[in-house]
Design a binder for these strands. Structure first.
Length: 261
DNA sequence: ATGCCCCCGGTTCGGGGA
């Protein structure tokens, strides 16, 4: 069972990159963020042709998330429970592979939060508190492995960016969000990629600007967070960095975790 | 670590991203 997260930065603008990667990596489940289209405009046929069911929670122009699955997908939740949100940033479902263990998967796109201070920064913090409350509730009655993945817009540690001093006051790195991430992990969540490597320059995003990609000036902001039942099954993780070098790439690359069973 | 790029809508620029 391979589960992946990928911020596509517009599914319509980057469809060849997405379908090419789906063919190559063939994840069982993929959570997409920033699809930037309404549900009716999602390129469903192209993705279904690759063997995926599609559940979308779209929005015009901005945001928008989707779950793709090769297996049966049920109990789809659109929108972060307990949080009145005008933006489409959360979709969750339960996945039932034939003859395999089911997974509960939440796919999210956390607000960026810049500039600080601003209404956007307040919104990011309120959004994260609502996420914390939802995950805390889910962790109390673990009926199946839970994966909470997506674009968190948080670098958890100094090694998750090239120049931590330069990022100190940014909404992706300020004390408040790193503190959130520590509290969040303390609920019992495992950061899948970081649990498999302590290597520096383990990045998932490279800005289009300022030669960030050729200089390898990246960030690690896309994460798969695992409940204890999911972490027990974790076999390996990967970051499909080569996708960033293709024509017309997203500024993020896919990140995945492989599970036994 | 932003002046630089990229996407969107619906123009020829502004909002948003990270």
């Amino acid at each position: 069972m391979r589960i992946a997260t990928y911020n596509v930065n517009s599914i319509k603008a980057h469809l060849p990159a997405v379908t090419g990667w789906l063919r190559e990596r063939a994840p069982d489940v993929a959570g997409l963020q920033e699809i930037k289209c309404v549900d009716d405009a999602f390129p469903r046929l192209e993705i279904e042709a690759l063997g995926y069911r599609c559940e979308t929670f779209g929005q015009k122009t901005y945001n928008g998330v989707a779950l793709l699955s090769k297996h049966k997908m049920e109990d789809v939740t659109r929108g972060l429970p307990g949080f009145a949100d005008e933006q489409s940033r959360f979709i969750a479902a339960r996945i039932y592979p034939k003859g395999g263990a089911p997974f509960h998967i939440a796919n999210l796109y956390v607000p960026n939060g810049n500039p600080v201070p601003s209404e956007k920064w307040d919104y990011k913090q309120r959004w994260l508190e609502a996420l914390f409350a939802w995950v805390e509730g889910e962790m109390k009655s673990p009926d199946m492995p839970l994966v909470v993945m997506g674009d968190y817009n948080i670098m958890p540690e100094d090694i998750d960016c090239h120049d931590p001093k330069a990022w100190r006051d940014d909404a992706l790195f300020r004390n408040e969000v790193r503190q959130f991430f520590r509290r969040y992990r303390a609920l019992g969540l495992t950061d899948a990629v970081r649990s498999c490597t302590s290597a520096k320059e383990t990045y998932t995003f490279w800005d289009y600007q300022a030669g960030a990609w050729p200089k390898n000036n990246g960030l690690r902001i896309d994460h798969l967070m695992l409940s204890p039942l999911a972490a027990d099954r974790l076999v390996s993780t990967g970051i499909d960095k080569h996708v960033r070098g293709h024509d017309k790439p997203s500024d993020h690359v896919p990140v995945w975790a492989k599970f036994a069973g």
